[in-house]
Simulated scan of single mutants.
Amino acid sequence: MGIKIYVASLSLIFFIILVFFFYQFNFNLNTPIENWVNTASYFNGILTPPLLAITSVLIFLTWRTSKSELEETKLALREQSDTQNFSVIKDAVFEIANEIKVTMQKEIRVFDDNKEIYFINFDGYKDSEIDEYYYEHSQKIPLEKFIFEYFQFLKTRPDKNIERNKQHVDIIFSKETFEYIDKIKSIALFMRALKSKEYREVLEVTLFAKLTIFTWLMFVEIAFHLRQTAKEGEKETAELVFLEIAGLVCRQLKEIAWRNALSDEVLLELEKRKLL
């Protein structure tokens, strides 16, 4: 709107000068060519500065419009990229979560005679080769049920000076659960790759709901164990995995009682990082 007023004002001023000029000097088509040249030079001198000013303003407006359109284009491309990024990561982590749900239903055998507790596997043995004592003091249950019972046990804050309690606490770090290490790492790295804060919040809520809180608590314990036992060259990745998994669980798990079922070492680390 400003440029239109500016152009209209200059046009009005030029028209007034033109009228005044011909009123003063008269208009005669038979005027010698030299007079026409002088007249042209006169108007050229008058019009050049304002026309240059208008041209400069128009160039500036064109540049500003182009810059604005470029920013809008960049924003649209960024949003499109974020959407595509979210879609790919969502599909990947959901697939991992679905695989975990299936494997959490696998049956495991737990030996417990009140003195010792550990996972036991009779596969590959004939019945005649297995001591009846192990049958009597072991049970076959879904891994998911064992994880639930494990964190119920941890909520009691067992005395780790008792050998069986120590075994029970450490049983979570065995080949039965370590098959989830790669899945835990994959989830953490995928979530890390999601740049949009809004998309991350949505994905965290939906992903957390796909697994039980006890599965997520197990992931935190394993991620912490990986961080504590990481070798040189693996520490940075282990730290990242722990932060991503622990952060996700702390943000989504509202039941403080179950959050407190985590080991004392993990809770201390979470408090240090202000995640609780």
Rank of each mutant, 00 (worst) to 15 (best):
173 F>D: 12
48 T>H: 07
56 S>Y: 12
63 W>Y: 07
42 Y>F: 15
160 K>I: 11
72 E>K: 12
89 I>V: 13
104 M>Q: 13
52 L>I: 13
166 K>Y: 14
108 I>E: 12
62 T>C: 11
172 I>M: 15
105 Q>N: 14
141 I>E: 04
124 G>S: 07
97 A>F: 10
153 F>I: 07
120 I>A: 03
57 V>Q: 06
71 E>H: 12
146 F>H: 14
67 K>N: 09
37 V>F: 13
68 S>L: 09
90 K>M: 07
70 L>D: 04
126 K>Y: 09
134 Y>F: 15
169 V>F: 08
91 D>G: 09
149 E>P: 05
57 V>K: 10
96 I>P: 01
56 S>D: 00
138 S>C: 10
107 E>I: 07
169 V>Y: 11
160 K>R: 10
61 L>C: 00
152 Q>M: 08
77 L>I: 11
135 Y>E: 03
111 F>G: 01
49 P>Y: 02
48 T>E: 09
93 V>A: 02
99 E>V: 03
46 I>C: 03
131 D>F: 07
33 I>R: 10
64 R>D: 15
63 W>R: 00
44 N>W: 11
59 I>L: 14
150 Y>H: 15
151 F>P: 02
133 Y>A: 02
112 D>F: 03
90 K>V: 02
86 F>Y: 15
85 N>S: 13
88 V>Q: 13
45 G>Y: 14
36 W>N: 08
89 I>N: 01
137 H>C: 07
33 I>W: 13
34 E>F: 09
135 Y>A: 02
113 D>E: 10
77 L>S: 11
43 F>V: 05
75 L>K: 10
87 S>W: 05
158 P>Y: 08
38 N>E: 08
157 R>M: 05
89 I>F: 02
167 Q>M: 14
142 P>K: 09
125 Y>N: 04
77 L>M: 11
54 I>F: 05
57 V>Y: 11
98 N>P: 00
60 F>M: 10
118 Y>D: 02
133 Y>F: 15
42 Y>R: 06
107 E>F: 06
61 L>Q: 09
94 F>N: 11
43 F>I: 07
74 K>Q: 13
134 Y>Q: 04
58 L>K: 00
143 L>N: 02
77 L>P: 01
105 Q>R: 12
48 T>M: 11
119 F>N: 01
75 L>M: 02
127 D>M: 04
77 L>Y: 07
147 I>Q: 02
40 A>D: 00
106 K>Y: 06
63 W>E: 03
38 N>V: 04
167 Q>E: 11
32 P>W: 05
97 A>N: 04
80 Q>T: 14
142 P>S: 10
36 W>M: 07
118 Y>G: 00
155 K>E: 11
102 V>L: 15
109 R>G: 02
105 Q>D: 13
87 S>F: 09
60 F>L: 14
86 F>D: 03
38 N>K: 14
62 T>P: 00
116 E>C: 03
48 T>Q: 11
128 S>C: 00
108 I>D: 03
68 S>G: 01
122 F>H: 04
71 E>Q: 13
85 N>P: 00
92 A>C: 05
85 N>K: 12
164 R>Q: 09
96 I>Y: 08
129 E>V: 06
77 L>D: 08
63 W>K: 01
150 Y>N: 06
134 Y>H: 12
102 V>C: 07
167 Q>H: 04
57 V>P: 01
172 I>D: 02
173 F>T: 05
80 Q>Y: 13
170 D>A: 14
71 E>M: 10
168 H>L: 08
76 A>S: 14
